[in-house]
Design a protein around this nucleic acid. Structure first.
Lengths: 343, 343
DNA sequence: GTTAGCACTCGATAAAGTTGGTTGCTAACA
DNA sequence: TGTTAGCAACCAACTTTATCGAGTGCTAAC
């Protein structure tokens, strides 16, 4: 295992590289970090560290750069979380307080806030309804050809849809139908709803609408099985020297547009605490040069979605994981309070 | 005014530059376009064209490039629209048909489609509700602490909001309140609603909720007075040699994130047909090197929003304005049909 | 085990050279 | 008077060559 001195040197290399993005040599370490040993000694230790796979020499006669393994050691053994600063904490509390009524906004705004605080890219997957229960369904008059449908879940999501019809229904008829639907749907888990096996007898116009509404609900459910996903601060990537090449930018930005990739990226594990995935540790080819720091959030024990912060491998793991830690606590608190009635 | 030969040469320069992005010289014109005159003559004519301000020499001893004035002449006098190709037409019809039930999706998907067809960036401003009338308001139970509110407009937009309360209301009470709200709000223009001057007497709990709902409606109206705006295909800009410099990309992408700029860009005029704004003709400093082709769409005679396609000044004015022309017709048809009941 | 000294490596930057498309001008021509 | 061939000059872009500097590995001495 690594001795104290090697650890110190590795830590210096990682921190310096995170800060400067330049390969770092023995003489620089000697001057910048007072380790009390000469550059020649540092050179010997670095040679060992390279052999052990913790650092890499981009080319002969250049300084060293941390390898994935080096970052891993740093993250696991040399780093801890800090508390949020007062500024960060109030900033985030405000965001959350201002968007507490609207889940979708909350996630979008949180992503924005994280990007702003960290200068990295944030990916958020939205609370999906398919793991939740239907708490209410409502039909509403729109115009003589269309009926609006709202579906509310116990995770406080509201989904709308428009149902086209050939004839107009009165408010009373709509209310009536709304009651029928609710008596049947309320409290059901959304992915257990089997709209194909419902039958309705009686007035033909109303039952026509009834089936159309069931179809619409089916659509909402299908649609929602595809997770919603947002990114924020993608442009922040342009500020890193890692992406001074336009071709790299192009391929990275294309990747950020691929839902599937993002979903995989966020979904790969679902541990309870904050996960740090470094470089090639993730399975996505196009992301081999990036790291991601992520966390899941839960509602009533169900995983609802995740927040991930993406940056170059030399991203500021310390700052980002600290901030994410603070945020996840806050959000989970909110979700817990929102649902402290039953369950 | 320009004689026939000068026009031919200018047209050749514009078309060639749109295609190749390289300054074009007299010898190239001679060889590539059979104008029946020698390069020396072309050279003389080009010298005239430059003096008249239609073309520019980026540096001594390079070929010529169209100036804003040159593009203007080309667009106004040398270009016309073509019909949509069958492929384009069916593609667009499908998009529209698939999203006819949901205004927001329709605009987003249209923007996506345009970016896909043209390889430029599309900006769309969403139908705002503040120019429309309220056709229905609905309260719905959410959980014991919150009531969901849906507001439907005659332009088929559905807006949701959550109202927090300290106590639970029964379905019957909610329906009751819904009726009261509708009797008062239905048919009103949304920007004429004056929620501050309503009074309600009677049961204290219900009237408490009543005022909270009015507040929420106020919020929706205020929020919607800020136009919603989307961009699509921003990354397409990366493919143009104009943006091979990372600094330019950075500043352009930052600009695309500024709502105000985009709103100004789309809103600058509101003529009936397609408008082409070339380079410095628009008032936005950061957009001096770009052109925008845009159109408004209307609903019942009211301007609802606009679609704009942004590209480098040498964008394919012919293709883009033709496609936009086709799209606007389709969308306005849809909106007209959606509202052919009254008004 | 640690350190000073030194030859060597190699990317980055700067300087010098080459190329190719283009112009403007002049003189000859129709 | 308009058109054209011919030619010197121009200059961005690219290639080649030279220089620089931060860094290494190795050796010998402490």
């Amino acid at each position: 295992m690594l001795n104290e001195r090697k650890l110190k040197i590795l830590e210096a290399i990682v921190k310096d590289y995170i800060e400067t993005a330049e390969p770092i040599g023995s003489r620089t370490i000697e001057k910048k970090y007072n380790l009390g040993i000469s550059s020649a000694t540092i050179r010997n230790e670095m040679s060992d560290l390279e052999e052990m796979g913790y650092i890499i020499q981009p080319h002969t006669s250049s300084g060293r750069v941390p390898s994935d393994k080096g970052y891993r050691l740093y993250v696991d053994n040399l780093m801890n979380y800090r508390e949020l600063t007062l500024d960060e904490a109030t900033f985030l509390k405000n965001i959350i307080a201002n968007n507490i009524n609207h889940m979708e906004y909350l996630m979008k705004e949180t992503a924005k806030a994280i990007s702003l605080l960290t200068n990295y890219t944030t990916i958020v997957s939205e609370p999906t309804v398919n793991k939740t229960k239907i708490s209410h369904v409502q039909l509403m008059p729109m115009d003589e050809k269309s009926i609006a449908l709202a579906l509310i879940t116990d995770s406080k999501a509201i989904k709308n849809h428009v149902v086209l019809v050939d004839f107009e229904l009165s408010d009373a008829e709509l209310n009536n139908l709304t009651q029928i639907l609710n008596s049947w749907l309320r409290g059901r888990a959304i992915d257990e709803v089997d709209v194909d096996n419902v039958k309705m007898s009686g007035d033909s116009n109303i039952s026509k609408v009834f089936y159309k509404v069931l179809d619409a609900i089916k659509n909402i459910i299908l649609q929602e099985k595809n997770v919603n996903i947002y990114t924020s601060g993608v442009n922040n990537m342009l500020d890193f020297p890692e992406f001074s090449d336009i071709e790299k930018v192009k391929s990275l930005f294309k990747t950020f547009e691929e839902r599937d990739v993002l979903i995989t990226l966020l979904g790969e594990s679902s541990a309870d605490d904050i996960q740090i995935v470094i470089g090639a540790e993730n399975s996505i080819e196009q992301m081999k040069d990036l790291s991601i720091i992520k966390a899941n959030y839960q509602f009533k024990g169900r995983d609802l979605g995740a927040i991930g912060i993406v940056g170059p491998k030399r991203m500021d793991y310390f700052q980002v994981s600290s901030i994410l830690n603070g945020i996840v606590k806050n959000i989970n608190d909110i979700l817990r309070n929102a649902g402290n009635d039953d369950g």
